[in-house]
Structure formats: structure tokens, C-alpha cells
Design a protein around this nucleic acid. Structure first.
Length: 474
RNA sequence: GUCCCCAUCGUCUAGCGGUCUAGGACAUCGCCCUUUCACGGCGAAAACACGGGUUCGAGUCCCGUUGGGGACGCCA
């Protein structure tokens, strides 16, 4: 049997982080078993569904690298088929028309709650004679659900879960306007699409019982269910926009790499022994539902940041230059020129070791892309004392002698100066760093100098002397 | 209110009756490395919610309590 999974978001917003994990698990499960991963847009609530949301979800999945097989299925396009199934059930006496008004239903619920009974539809039209039907109320179609016994689900994550049928009521299949409800649509679509495994959030667990009853009514084989626990916010409450329930594009904008987010999301609720760093290929090889836990987890930016740092360090330098360029453009007047791009590429090894996100990477990289004279931070300015500037002048004279400008060559000159003046390396290095980067922290200086090249290095040293003088005067 | 699910360090988790004086990772705190900041290395502190059972033996099985979460729509 070929495994067929699906991700079925409703396009009422962006692809949030919980949905992204559900998609990831479905994708991994399908890939692991050599099956297919389908996408279905549940847009039957046309008031709330928007094309922007659909695009956001598709873009989010693509960015995360979760490519689906075939064309996405739009649920709204299948309304006729859903209605057809409802009518078949009606014809077979497995469903019936219900003429309750909204007010009547509300009163029913209020009463049940007040009396401490389960809040359910009481089935008052289930066996009523059609001749009693009012003519001024458009009816809905309800399924005749079993009233005694129990419904049991063998869930691949939750295990065996059972519920007494009296807890379930006769759910609506077709609304008064003839459109299908979600419960009907999912079942018909999952069946028609040949879905073998339904992997989704455990907020759907109770829905699964009702859906199973529908499968039974239609005499269809139900898919295997796997309800994965939800992701909570740092405070343990349901994930809200305030703490992490952002769209995946927000994570992209914050500077996280898709492979890092995949790894992080994978480890949220799933484990393979003590493994932490799991690339996608390895994830496909290892992923299965028996590794999924049953308790909800909390979203932790610190751990995501750590993982992102790891993947940043492992990333290709040219790719990182491409990713960081638009972020630099926002920090500068315009797009960095060719010379700056070359520096970024050459300086990337030192840069990427010091960043947890692309945003940080961009912050740390601006000094390579800026045109002279560099703006100086307060702390950097503090380092450019008259004494330090004098020393930088002597250093500049030494450096000017260097013919073959390499890391080793500039290091030799600096050490030579340090020895000659009997100072610590730091006493030269920190003012030098301030002069070359405008900051007090940066990648290793010899590397920075090699990347900047001889002319730029000497020019920046000259700039720093002037800036320092101007400041001393004030 | 009714039903369902969950419960190991602050967080993510390993653990599938004895090898657990409970392991790893992130975060935290020391030390080392060091031209700054990171990275890296070494080390420390930190958990089986509680109460009953079952068993020779329970973090692991059962029941209850407490605490979280979810579902109860002509939303999806």
C-alpha cells in the first residue's frame, strides 16, 4: 500500500508554526515511506478564505522546502460531490432533514449545560414524520449517528481512544443553503483522494470519532489517524500571536534558515534517541510516528537560535551573501557594490561564526559594505585616544611597507610593532578594530585586514585618525 | 458543565520493569582557549507532580487526586 498523506490548511490566515509542523510531519512520513504528500486547501468558508492567505500558505510551504505532490485540491470546487454523498445517505435513510431553528438549538444547548448534561443536539427530527415539517424553515441534513455503544479509534500517536456514542450527536452534513459542512467535506475528500494516513493536530481528535461514523455510514475504509500534540507558547497557554504563532514568513524575516526551522520543528514532539542535529535527509530516513510524543511542547526561541547558528555556520558562503544582501540594502543607502560583495564573500567565514540569525549576520557585516568614512560607535571612539592614534600612525607606516598583503604578512607587522613598543597585542588590536570596523567587536582582525585589502585598510586608518582628532578637539 | 488527551531538569527530550546514585541538547553559572565578540573544549547547578496499588523490584504497569491542554457550531 502506498502511503498518501495530506496537509489541509484553511486559508483564513498565514501558515502558522503549528501548521508548519503538521505539514512537516506529513511530508516526512510520506517521504520516509516512499509515498505521496498532497495539499488540500479547505476554503469552504468563503467569507473567511482569502487568496492572499492561500498564497501565504503556498509560499510558506515552498520556503520551508515542503513540496507537495500534484496540484493542490481546492475543497470549494468539490461542493457538488460532497452534497451528492449527503443525498446518497439521505436516500439510504442514514441521514435526515432537520428543521430546528438557530434559536431552538441555542435553547437546547443552554438547557443541557444548565442541567449538566452533554451539550448535544437531541435528535428531535431524527424519526419525525416528514409531514410535520414546517414550510417556512429551510432544513439542514443531519447524519443518523449511532446512539448506543461506543466508537473506537486506533490512533498511531494517541493509542486506542474510545468514546461512548451518546457523547456524539447527529452532526450537520449540509447547511440550510445546501452547502456542505467541514465534517462532510473532509471525509469525502480524504476518501476520494485516497488518503491513507491522516496526521493532524490533536485538536481534531474528537472530530475523528464523528468522521469515523461517517466512513462507516458510507461503508468506506477509514484512513489511519495520528493526532499529534499541539505546540504551546512559552507560558504553556495556547500559542497566540504574541508568542510565536507567527507565520513562517515572519521566521524567514527574522533571519532563520528553513533547514534550521525544519530541524527545530522536527524535535518539537519527536525524538530519535539523543539526536539533536538532524538534517533533512537524515530526518526522512529516521522519521516515523512511533517517535512522536503525546504531550504538548512549548516554543523556545533560544533553542531555535542555537540551531540556526549551527546551520548558518554550515551554510555555503555564496548563499549567505545572497541572503544577507537585501538586509544590508535596508541598512545602507542602497545595494552594496561589487567590491563590497567580494569582501562579504571573503569575510563570510569569520562573519557566520558569530551570528545566530541572518539579521545578526547583516548587523555584523555592514562594516564590510559601508563606504568611507565609517560611522563610529561611542565605544569605538573611546578607544581612539591620542596615544592609540599615534600608535596607529606608526602601524600604518609599517603596513605601508607590506608588498604581499596576506593575513600572515599583516600579522607579522602588528606583532613587530607590539614587540617594539612593549605593549600587549590588545592595546594595538582594539584601537585598530575600532578604526577598521567602527565597532569594538568583529571577526579576527588579521582576517578583516586581509579581506579589506591594503588600500582600504590604510584609508580607514587615516579616517580614524581624523575622526579621533575631531573628537578630541570637541 | 460533559467528554477526550497529557504530566521526567527553566525549555525540548532519552527512558519502552531491574543496566537510573535518571542520559543528551538549549538556556544559566564557572574555568580554559583568545586581539574583541563569537565558535570550540572542560565542569557545575538543575527533573521522574502527589497518593494509593500490582510486582522480588516502578520514572517505566493500574487506579485516584491535583495541575495543564483540547473538543463540545448550519467555523475549519
Amino acid at each position: 500500500m502506498t502511503v498518501i498523506t495530506r496537509f489541509a490548511p484553511s486559508p483564513t490566515g498565514f501558515l502558522h508554526i503549528g501548521g508548519a509542523r503538521t505539514a512537516l510531519f506529513n511530508w516526512l512520513f510520506a517521504r520516509h515511506h516512499g509515498g505521496r504528500f498532497l495539499l488540500r486547501i479547505e476554503d469552504t468558508d468563503r467569507q473567511r478564505s482569502t487568496t492572499e492567505a492561500i498564497d501565504a500558505i503556498l509560499d510558506g510551504l515552498r520556503w520551508l522546502g515542503l513540496e507537495w505532490d500534484g496540484e493542490p485540491v481546492f475543497q470549494s470546487a468539490r461542493a457538488a460531490r460532497h452534497a451528492e454523498v449527503a443525498h446518497q445517505l439521505l436516500a439510504e435513510g442514514k441521514a435526515y432533514y432537520c428543521y430546528c431553528t438557530q434559536e431552538e438549538l441555542q435553547a437546547m444547548r443552554d438547557e443541557a449545560r444548565a442541567a449538566g448534561r452533554p451539550v448535544r443536539y437531541d435528535g428531535r427530527w431524527r424519526d419525525r414524520d416528514p409531514s410535520e415539517a414546517p414550510t417556512d424553515v429551510p432544513p439542514v441534513v443531519r447524519v443518523k449517528a449511532p446512539q448506543v455503544g461506543e466508537t473506537v479509534i486506533e490512533d498511531l500517536v494517541q493509542g486506542e481512544v474510545r468514546i461512548a456514542n451518546e457523547q456524539l450527536d447527529d452532526m450537520v452534513l449540509l447547511r440550510a443553503d445546501g452547502t456542505p459542512t467541514y465534517m462532510l467535506s473532509v471525509v469525502v475528500d480524504d476518501h476520494d483522494m485516497g488518503i491513507t494516513h491522516v496526521i493532524r493536530g490533536d485538536d481534531h481528535l474528537t472530530n475523528a470519532f464523528r468522521q469515523l461514523q461517517l466512513y462507516n455510514a458510507m461503508d468506506w475504509t477509514a484512513p489511519i489517524f495520528a493526532h499529534i500534540p499541539l505546540i504551546h507558547g512559552p507560558d504553556g497557554a495556547k500559542l497566540s500571536k504574541r508568542h510565536g504563532a507567527l507565520g513562517v514568513e515572519a521566521y524567514r524575516d527574522m533571519g532563520y534558515l528553513p533547514e534550521a526551522l525544519r530541524n527545530y520543528l522536527l524535535r518539537l514532539g519527536w525524538a530519535h534517541g539523543d539526536e539533536e542535529i538532524i538534517d533533512t535527509e537524515q530526518a526522512i530516513a529516521w522519521f516515523d510516528l512511533d517517535g512522536v510524543g503525546r504531550s504538548p511542547s512549548r516554543f523556545d526561541f533560544a533553542k531555535l537560535g542555537n540551531l540556526n547558528g549551527h546551520y548558518l555556520r554550515a551554510a555555503d558562503d555564496a548563499r549567505l551573501v545572497d541572503l544577507v544582501l537585501p538586509r544590508l540594502e535596508r541598512r545602507l543607502d542602497g545595494m552594496p557594490d561589487a567590491a563590497a560583495r567580494t569582501r562579504l564573500f571573503l569575510g563570510m567565514p569569520g562573519l557566520k561564526a558569530r551570528a545566530k540569525t541572518l539579521e545578526e549576520l547583516a548587523d555584523n557585516a555592514v562594516f564590510y559594505a559601508r563606504s568611507r568614512p565609517l560611522p563610529m560607535s561611542e565605544k569605538a571612539l573611546d578607544l581612539l585616544t591620542p596615544e592609540a592614534r599615534a600608535r596607529l600612525d606608526r602601524l600604518a607606516a609599517l603596513l605601508a611597507e607590506v608588498e604581499d598583503w596576506t593575513e600572515a604578512a599583516v600579522e607579522e607587522k602588528i606583532r613587530q610593532l607590539v614587540d617594539a613598543e612593549g605593549v600587549k597585542l590588545g592595546q594595538v588590536a582594539q584601537p585598530l578594530r575600532a578604526a577598521l570596523t567602527g565597532s569594538t567587536t568583529s571577526p579576527g582582525l588579521f582576517e578583516v585586514m586581509a579581506v579589506l585589502g591594503r588600500d582600504e585598510t590604510l584609508a580607514r586608518l587615516g579616517d580614524a585618525r581624523r575622526v579621533g582628532e575631531a573628537r578630541t578637539v570637541n
